[in-house]
Amino acid sequence: MIEVQDLHFTYPSGVEALKGISLKIEDGEFVAIMGENGAGKTTLVKHFNGLLKPTKGRVIVNGIETTKVSVATLARKVGFVFQNPDHQLFAETVEEEISFALRNFGFSPSVIEKRVTWALNLLGLMQYRKTSPFMLSGGERKRVALASVLAWDPEILILDEPTIGQDYQQKENLRQFIMQLRTQGKTVLVVTHDVEFVAECNPRVLLMRGGKLIADGAARKVLTDPEILAQSSIVPPQITQLFIELSSLGFPSDIIDLYEARETLLKAFGAAAK
């Protein structure tokens, strides 16, 4: 569980990035953190594995206050996959890349061997085991970065902008992968501004603006609420845009799902035909 109490954070440069945030994330939840660039999304999640420490307020992860322990200790529970895989890949082979964190955390060689194999299989990277990560394509490098974090099996997984530069199929694979992690009871946090991706996943949404939390609720509610949308820079999902257009005809405007949209329209057409 992650508990944030009145969190304030000011960078050494004097920029006040977080201005009083309180929230609770339960075990096994799937949360999308949204908001424009500079809203404080990444600053907030960097508090969850201790990379940043609160200027004021408290962050408690699994009962431990983040100021009391090292990043390495917290990272064991909280896996953080950065936006750009090139900011972390350095090893000679994919296999070594994935075992890097395992060695840092002091796993035994036999466990490391097993975990690496497991992670390679999980992300379909087996054929690249002995390949240099620098030889892989962008999408593959992203998967190696993800595998290198999943390998130590953290309870909480944070993904920073995982859909940037990804094509439709890659996003779909990522979505299914997240769903699979959820069935294993993992807590998954995604920092993103990809509304269509969020609409398809339908997680809990935390919407940020100017270092503050301005909305917290189901994607279906947050992404369709005209009042919230008016004060954030979020462009609603296409399906919602359609139903906002149609709201004068008496349609509900809180629809984000393609199949729900289809049912609603079919019903309306059927009723009109009678």
Binding site: A199, Q238, I239, Q241, A261, R262, L265, L266
Partner: peptide, 20 residues
Amino acid sequence: IGVGIPKVTRLYQLLKADGV
């Protein structure tokens, strides 16, 4: 399918397949 066409276009296609 692999290209990821706009959601409203996809909705249109689904409804067309439904006979609309």
